[in-house]
Amino acid sequence: MSESDRQAPLVDKAALRRHFGRAAAAYESTAVLQDRVGQNLLERLDFLRCTPEWILDLGAGTGLQSRRLNRRFPKARVVAVDIAHPMLLEARRRKGWRQRQSFCQGDAEALPLRSASIDLVYANLCLQWSALDQTLAEIARVLRPGGLLLFTTLGPDTLTELRQSFAAVDAQPHVHPFLDMHDVGDSLQQRGFVDPILDVDHFSLEYGELAHLLRELRGIGAGNALSGRARGLWTPRRWRALSAAYERWRTHGRLPAHYEVIYAHAWAPEPRDVRGETPARAPLRFHPRGKAAG
């Protein structure tokens, strides 16, 4: 995939803010997968040498992972950034914060932070909502030399059942297109990150009815925010066609929803030495399954 493809403005940011804003109050009780993946991502810090003073939790939502980062690094200041202001308002109301905590509304493609001000960027399942190259360029800008980027994002097999079922009804975009692991790795290298390591895990959630899945997606703010999405309400006839198309996936009385989760970490480059040379980079490494130690 070309750089221009990764930069394509696929998401209506105003719609994205509305969706996540409406989901704020009930987000933590609904976002079960996001919580599990976020905890898995935090566990990777056990294998990485990192003692940050300033941490950015990008796409912080209601601050669940920010609070965990806050407890893990009690001497660090955690900056929770999210595109939806109601999410941050909900985060402020939550218990469990230490004193060294900040909240800031902002877009991942234009971070409201000083250059070279952050030691650790943690981003759990948020980068898929923005143009990857632009977001990584912003992360590279705000990271201090040698700083760590630790993130998860969704791969192209995510919600494949829902994507194919919608395709059986019409040709409109309904499910966000997700980049594969190799495109993510290429973008990390092109943005100057050092020693990137990526691997993939797969999750399957089950539902009694399609309506339950769609209600949960809306409940975490993951509604259709594509710029080219169709407007208007669905007719009963189209809804029945969609439900019938999804039924072919039913197994043992349940409807599955598959998620492909990409885990990645990489380092911001150190300053050039007196000869104008940067330290040698290790080759890009992919781990098809399981956790990678840095």
Rank of each mutant, 00 (worst) to 15 (best):
S204M: 10
L179S: 07
A171T: 14
I220C: 04
R218L: 10
L120E: 03
L226S: 07
R114I: 00
P156D: 00
L136T: 04
L125V: 08
N124R: 09
A140C: 07
T158W: 03
L214C: 01
G208A: 11
D157P: 04
P177R: 11
G147P: 07
G146N: 06
G208N: 14
L148P: 04
H182T: 13
G155W: 05
L149M: 11
Y207V: 02
R163K: 14
L143W: 09
A225V: 13
F166Y: 15
V184M: 06
D186H: 01
Q172K: 13
D170Y: 01
E138I: 13
A225C: 15
A171E: 14
F151A: 11
L179Y: 03
R114Q: 12
W129C: 06
G228C: 02
L198C: 11
P156H: 03
L143I: 10
A131F: 01
H174Y: 09
Q172W: 15
L217R: 11
A171S: 15
T158F: 04
Q172S: 14
F151E: 07
L143F: 09
A167Y: 00
L132T: 01
F166W: 15
L179R: 03
L233R: 14
A140I: 01
G146H: 03
S227D: 00
L154H: 08
S165Y: 06
A131Y: 02
P145L: 04
C126G: 11
A167S: 12
S204H: 07
D199T: 15
P173L: 07
W129D: 06
A168H: 13
F151N: 03
G192S: 10
E209D: 12
I139H: 08
A222P: 06
S227G: 12
G192E: 04
L179I: 05
L162E: 07
R229C: 05
Q190A: 14
S130Y: 14
A230M: 10
G192N: 08
E138R: 08
L162S: 05
F151G: 04
A168E: 15
E209C: 09
T235K: 08
T135W: 01
F166D: 09
R229Q: 10
A167N: 02
L233P: 07
I139Q: 08
G192V: 03
L213Q: 03
I220E: 04
R191L: 09
Y207I: 02
N224R: 12
G155N: 11
A167H: 07
G228Q: 07
G185A: 14
V200C: 13
I220D: 01
F151Y: 12
G223M: 05
T160M: 12
S115Y: 02
Y207D: 02
F178G: 04
T135E: 02
P173C: 10
Q189M: 12
D199A: 14
L136V: 05
G208P: 00
D157T: 04
T235W: 01
I197R: 15
V169H: 02
Q172D: 15
R218S: 08
G221N: 06
V194C: 13
D170I: 02
R231E: 12
L188S: 12
T153R: 11
G155I: 09
S165L: 09
I220Q: 09
N124W: 10
T153F: 11
F203I: 00
Q172L: 13
